[in-house]
Design a protein around this nucleic acid. Structure first.
Length: 327
DNA sequence: GGTAGACCTGGACGC
DNA sequence: GCGTCCAGGTCTACC
């Protein structure tokens, strides 16, 4: 089958290894980071079918990204793929936008940290967030792997089968029992199906208004209230989805944050008290609070396990959190 | 508005 | 190898 090769010009400071390996979702299926070749590959679900794509930043290419696909693409398919890659890699966050963060928190100016890896679609980000709630990280890895293998579209290439992340339409048709029994999502089963229905339904029939959620004109408060109204989304998940939407003013604090507050910031008190103190600690960062908090924690993980781009999903990628360090 | 308990799974631990 | 306990965020019932 004829392949396609696309060239993308990212922001001038873009570093694929650094900026992909910046948030745990790069370790979740269907994403595969090859730390030896420093290449990211995954199956993308496009309107005309799934396609396997490999993203690299070859030396000597002036920083440009090379995207190779497993099959040829029509113009519409190329545009759709570029849109999804741009969202996933946050290529629309310019060096100037990062400079605003670095002015507030100069600790990350030299290393250039600032972009956070996310998913090609908002729906995938929402489901990944739900699978990260009330479960330890290895459980999240398993759920995403199985969701892809059981429900996601397949691409066969050279005797190997790879899977896409399920679309909202696909997940809306799956029974809760299948999700629980085969994907091991537990009590999240009905909530995931309900979310998938809301995402696949037209807005005028009560579906989720994705344009509104992704519109910069929508206020943080409206966004938060809309998200916490969704099934399976509480305050933590809503704040996390907000950072995935580029709203960095709220902190999705969980037990990992409490550990960080106690061990790294020296905060004392009950979990609830430590969480309040962590909020207060990062409040001066205003609309950049999450990036300051996150990269402080990410730097701590890297100090224990080496640069994130060297992590493998099956080893360090399962055990990098502070919860495991404590053990 | 605040709190307690159920919801599930997988891993750790004790026997 | 088996049973028990625990971590984890959301949701609901109750005060």
């Amino acid at each position: 089958m004829k392949q396609a090769t696309l060239q993308l010009a990212p922001p001038a400071d873009y570093d694929l290894a650094r900026d992909v390996c910046s948030y745990g979702y790069f370790l979740l299926a269907p994403n595969h980071w090859d730390h030896e070749s420093r290449v990211l590959w995954r199956v993308f679900a496009l309107a005309d079918g799934p396609v396997l794509a490999e993203i690299a930043q070859p030396k000597g290419a002036g920083g440009k990204l090379r995207v190779r696909t497993s099959r040829s693409l029509l113009r519409e398919g190329k545009d759709e793929l570029v849109g999804q890659v741009t969202r996933m890699l946050r290529l629309d966050e310019s060096a100037e936008m990062l400079a605003a963060f670095h002015r507030l928190d100069p600790r990350f100016k030299k290393c250039g940290r600032g972009r956070l890896f996310r998913s090609p679609t908002l729906f995938e980000d929402v489901i990944k967030t739900v699978t990260s709630c009330n479960v330890q990280w290895p459980g999240t890895i398993t759920m995403n792997q199985r969701l892809c293998e059981v429900v996601g579209a397949k691409v066969r290439l050279g005797g190997v089968t790879a899977h896409a992340f399920p679309s909202a339409k696909q997940l809306a048709k799956v029974s809760a029992g299948t999700l629980r029994g085969r994907c091991r999502v537990g009590y999240r089963d009905k909530r995931i199906v309900e979310l998938a229905r809301l995402f696949s339904m037209p807005v005028k029939r009560g579906g989720i208004d994705q344009a509104m959620l992704q519109d910069p004109a929508t206020s943080d408060d409206v966004l938060f209230r809309t998200l916490v109204d969704l099934p399976g989304i509480g305050p933590y998940a809503a704040a996390n989805i907000m950072q995935l939407l580029g709203r960095y003013g709220r902190l999705p604090l969980d037990t990992e944050s409490v550990r960080h507050g106690r061990t790294m910031l020296g905060l004392k008190g009950s979990s609830a008290q430590v969480m309040k103190k962590v909020h207060a600690h990062f409040a001066p960062m205003g609309d950049q609070a999450f990036r300051s908090y996150w990269f402080e924690m990410w730097t701590f993980y890297e100090s224990k396990h080496g640069p994130a781009w060297t992590w493998e999903r099956s080893t360090t990628g399962r055990l990098f959190t502070a919860a495991h360090l404590n053990k």
